[in-house]
Design a protein around this nucleic acid. Structure first.
Length: 801
RNA sequence: GCCGGUGUGGCGGAACGGCAGACGCGACGGACUCAAAAUCCGUUAACUUCACGGUUGUGUGGGUUCAAAUCCCACCACCGGCACCA
């Protein structure tokens, strides 16, 4: 029979709220466990079924930890600054603050209907003044330490929207939203020196428990490489510095190439014979969009710089110097030593410009062919390096370079500094004042929060400035240092600012004197288990690790890493297997599911639908299976009789406890649920369950389906709540069946099975098997070559046919 | 191109050297019902056999092993990330 989930779920949600069941305790003598999920961006669309996958999964973890006796912190909040709200505000002429308030209310109502065990008393909102005060405070500390600086750089400007776009908003040189042309303009931008932490962001990954793909992706993104910086002298008494990861191939360098904005072009312009030609090339290259450049990857272009030649420091040979747009000015030194024999790009270039190709690592194939397999061979054509393997050659040449002061060991990163400014209204104002005399001066900390002025027009100005630039009473201030007339910075912080430290605020959300109270931080940090989407690996996750390390350096936090463990959930796809989106029309609203099936069924299905770490398509029809299961659980009380665990149920129960306990830890929620389903099927076969058995089962199911289990718990006569019970433990001795099924195989193929007592010796098993009629039949006329016995498992007869 | 992931029934997925397809959906048959829904019981990889049974099956091709979805080698397809990073 179907149970009345509407009433039951409402009843228990009210009880939990009234009794503050899930409020983190302030008794800091208890062992703590901090469970964290990425807080949502409260969009106008409301919650979609993808959000709760992470929330229910870690709700299971949080509830289990509480039952295990931990003082659990499982908080929730809102990451509310950002573009979608601002665009909505512009379009509908509503203040973003009001929109945020409405969206938050809706999200909260939706989340509450799912019975998630969040401690709502610690809710944080990144757009509240009490919160962004501390976001600004952190920025000021970074500014004071020289980690925040301003730099002139190219920005994307949409000619139609008249606004600066983030790189992600530019698709094929067009504006993602309106499709108009995007051009680059110069603008002075705030930058955070995340590169200063690059080494630590890689090295400290050794101390955390992140799933492998996350670690790999972060490492790739940071892109550390070890090599050398080598100086090449020119005939003009100047020099060109290059970065290479393969100094051992120095003898194979037959030309050099520099980026289109390399300083040598300016410095040596008097000596360049074909300057006009080069300037023309530079101009055309600059006009090429990112898109065109990537399209033209195969067809290398460039111009030889006439009048300048360089000397290969190893061979002493004179080599030509080119300017080419395949050299990135933002990586390394903006100049390369080219080894056409062993680098694909250099090879293509050399072919096109008829440059000599010298092979320096022995490998199969023609001398004039490209050979990229350069890790296994021995060095050739390389004087004192000849005959060495790559590794030793590298060492030897590095020493040689350093002894002769030609070059030095050097490492490089792909990671760039973080552009930390948006010309937008709906963000944290950057607390800086620009003074003619003093330069950039931080707002005095006593004046924080620097609040967003109330305005009505949220659009950017024509001259690339944020809407704040039009608010005179905001902009015009006195310099805090010298008192002269000065102007406020009008840029705001990017979306990622508030989320870079929110996990700290949850520890003491109302602290007025610091971003969080020292005692609270000491007790709760680090986060024990953090789950979130893979899409945040290189942005949010990396940014917040960076901020945390900075806060560690200035003594605010005690741990070098914020998150002890990081896991990730697979995406929930639409019924058709495609990504859920409004435009595809395949979005499922959790409200509808909760209304029709109830929160417990919804939660269960979210976790049962597939491997948690893998993407899975939503299937409305399949939800019924979870609903049916809960109905059967509800009706199980009809089979109830008083008593403790029955002897012949001991193994079944112990195995179930083990399975569910372990599967939660490894996030195999789907198999944990499957095991509980099997157990229920078993009970339906025997039509009997004792009170003690039922209690254990309900406790195991409770983290998954908290409402129905609490209801049943009280229905069968318990006066307490499961939430106040203990997580059941199992006895490993009792997880083993007393009889085992031995599979009889013939040449590895299963023929039949016999049931025997467990832990029989090899001889005993063989004895039993040989007496067995069926086995005799199978082995009739067969010549046994070999017999393999695996204790408690199988017997395999290898026969001749 | 580089890094990571995934390929198993009609579908979602289990099993991760030892019974392939747990659990669930769907489908089919039956019970209950005037009927439907709900519920309950049974069947459900393919081919083959009246039946007992047999054969083939975990992306493809090889290999290791008494035994491979699982380990090794080579390849293919799809998904995600990075991408002229020297």
């Amino acid at each position: 029979m179907a149970y009345d989930f509407k009433e039951i779920e409402k009843k228990w949600q009210n009880i939990w709220e009234k009794e503050e069941t899930f409020k983190a305790k302030t008794d800091y003598s208890l062992p703590k466990y901090y469970v964290l999920v990425e807080f949502p961006y409260p969009s106008a669309n409301g919650l979609h079924v993808g959000h709760p996958r992470s929330y229910t999964a870690l709700d299971v973890v949080a509830r289990k930890r509480r039952l295990q006796g931990f003082n659990v912190l499982y908080p929730m909040g809102w990451d509310a600054f950002g573009l979608p709200t601002e665009n909505f505000a512009i379009k509908n002429k509503i203040h973003p603050e009001i929109i945020t308030k409405n969206n938050v209310a809706r999200f909260k109502k939706q989340l509450k209907s799912l019975g998630l065990s969040f401690d709502w008393s610690r809710e944080v909102l990144t757009t509240s003044k009490d919160y962004y005060k501390w976001t600004q405070w952190i920025f000021i500390q970074m500014f004071k330490k020289g980690l925040a600086y301003k730099k002139e750089m190219d920005v994307n400007w949409c000619t139609s929207c008249k606004c600066v776009l983030a790189n992600e908003e530019v698709v094929n040189s067009k504006c993602e939203r309106c499709g108009s042309d995007v051009v680059t303009k110069k603008k002075s931008q705030w930058i955070l020196k995340i590169t200063e932490y690059a080494d630590r962001l890689i090295d400290d990954l050794d101390f955390v428990e992140y799933i492998l793909p996350v670690k790999q992706q972060q490492k790739n993104w940071i892109g550390r490489s070890f090599g050398a910086e080598i100086e090449f002298k020119t005939n003009t008494n100047s020099s060109i510095l290059v970065y290479t990861t393969r100094p051992d191939t120095l003898f194979g360098v037959t030309y050099m190439a520099v980026a289109i904005d390399h300083p040598i072009l300016e410095k040596e312009k008097d000596k360049i014979e074909n300057l006009d030609e080069i300037l023309k090339y530079v101009e055309t290259s600059k006009k090429k969009s990112e898109f065109e450049r990537s399209q033209l990857q195969k067809d290398k272009t460039g111009i030889e710089i006439k009048g300048i030649v360089a000397k290969n420091p190893a061979t002493g040979e004179t080599i030509p110097v080119f300017v080419s747009d395949y050299i990135l000015s933002s990586y390394g030194t903006g100049a390369i030593m080219a080894v056409p024999a062993h680098d694909k790009r250099d090879f293509e270039f050399a072919k096109k410009f008829n440059i000599k190709i010298v092979k320096v690592v022995e490998s199969k194939g023609n001398d004039a062919e490209l050979n990229e397999d350069t890790l296994t061979g021995k060095l050739i054509n390389s004087d004192f390096l000849n005959g060495l393997d790559v590794q030793s050659a590298k060492e030897k040449i590095l020493n040689w370079l350093e002894e002769n002061k030609i070059g030095k060991r050097k490492k490089n990163f792909k990671l760039r500094d973080w552009i930390f400014a948006r010309q937008r209204y709906w963000g944290e104002p950057i607390p800086i004042i620009h003074c003619k005399n003093c330069g950039a001066v931080a707002v005095d900390e006593s004046e924080l929060p620097l609040t967003l002025p109330q305005i009505e027009n949220f659009e950017q100005t024509e001259d690339l400035e944020s809407p704040l630039a039009a608010v005179e009473e905001f902009v015009n201030v006195k310099c805090p240092k010298c008192g002269a007339d000065a102007k406020r910075e009008t840029d705001t912080m990017p979306q990622w600012a508030g989320s870079s430290w929110y996990y700290l605020r949850y520890c003491s959300p109302t602290c007025k004197t610091a971003l969080a109270d020292e005692k609270d931080l000491k007790y709760w940090m680090p986060v024990d288990w953090y789950n979130g989407g893979m899409e945040h690996t290189t942005l949010h996750l990396l940014y917040s690790r960076f901020w945390h390390k900075f806060l560690y350096d200035i003594g605010v936090v005690e741990d070098i890493e914020p998150y002890k463990k990081r896991t990730s959930h697979g995406m929930i796809l639409g019924q058709n297997g495609e990504k859920m989106s409004k435009s595809r029309g395949n979005v499922v609203n959790p409200d509808d599911v909760v209304l029709e099936y109830g929160a417990d069924t919804f939660r269960l299905y979210e976790l049962f639908m597939g491997d948690f770490e893998q993407a899975a398509p939503w299937d409305t029809a399949s939800i019924k299976g979870c609903k049916k299961f809960l109905n059967r659980v509800y009706d199980m009380k009809e089979f109830l009789k008083e008593g403790s665990i029955r002897k012949d149920f001991e193994v079944l129960i112990n195995k179930l406890i083990k399975k569910v306990s372990e599967d939660i830890e490894t996030m195999k929620f789907n198999t944990a649920i499957a095991a509980m389903m099997s157990f229920v099927n078993e009970i339906y076969n025997s039509k009997e369950i004792t009170k003690d058995e039922f209690k254990i089962f309900l406790t195991l199911l409770n983290p998954f389906a908290p409402h129905i289990t609490e209801e049943l718990f009280s229905l069968i006569g318990f006066k307490t709540q499961i939430a106040n019970e203990k997580w059941p433990t199992y006895d490993i001795e009792k997880c083993i069946d007393k009889t085992v099924e031995i599979v009889v195989q013939l040449n590895g193929k299963v023929k039949h099975k016999i049931l025997v007592a467990k832990d029989l010796s090899k001889e005993e098993i063989l004895d039993l098997i040989e007496k067995d009629e069926k086995t005799k039949d199978i082995l009739k006329d067969k010549q046994i070559l070999k017999t393999i016995v695996v204790l408690n498992k199988l017997v395999n007869f290898v026969v001749k046919n």
